[in-house]
Amino acid sequence: MGRSLARLMAARGDRLVLLGRDAEQLERSAADLQARSGTDAPVLTAICDLADPSSFAPALSAATEGFGKLDCVVVTAGLFATQDQLEADPELALRLATIDFANTVGFCERARAVLLGGGGGKLCVFSSVAGDRGRKPVVIYGAAKAGLSAYLEGLDHKFRAQGLQTICVKPGFVKTGMTANLQPPPFAGEPDAVAARVLRAIDRGSPVVYAPWIWRWIMLVIRCLPRFVMRRIGF
């Protein structure tokens, strides 16, 4: 997802800093974005690992130094595992809850300070439709994303007046590297189409965006279902 979104941004001439865990992979992605943009503007990189909170501050300051000021921070990183895997491995469950909720909030808090320090901007974070309702296949992953979505909503309420727009992205199933080995359900989205929708939401400053769009209505129905129904269905 991050790759598709970054390619759209590079194509329209945005200047980018990529954050990630692996220096070599970052260099390759930066080369790709530069070749696609067709300009000489460099794509910068900095090491950052959501599993390692000590990497957040150096990464954000490196990014800020590169361009002087950041207009937008996008967080697509996260960890995914199926409910079966998480139930079988409590350590993995703890790691997932830490990375997808606690550490993501920790990163966003630093990004919020950086953006507000520069007079405001946009903070776009990938949460998930899994956070909209407690559900059997995503008990733990969904709980972490629910916490993240609540955090992002609060952030938006509190800081929008000061110029910080928060965009909470709730992707449904998207055919990406993360889901490559899962059977796509109906309404699965293509990364490029989802990225185009997310980019539009960033430009408009929409606080919540479902992608593909139909998931907004699917989740509306799911949220309205009574508990006794949710207990019976597998969704």
């Binding site: 997802m1 692996d22 992605s29 990183a77 996260g78 995914f80 993360m178």
Partner: peptide, 17 residues
């Protein structure tokens, strides 16, 4: 969605990573 880059590391080399 998705880790920022590359694969998730595992100790089992023959796994579909």
């Amino acid at each position: 969605m998705g880790t920022a880059d590359s694969v998730l590391h595992t100790e089992r080399p023959n796994l579909a990573v």
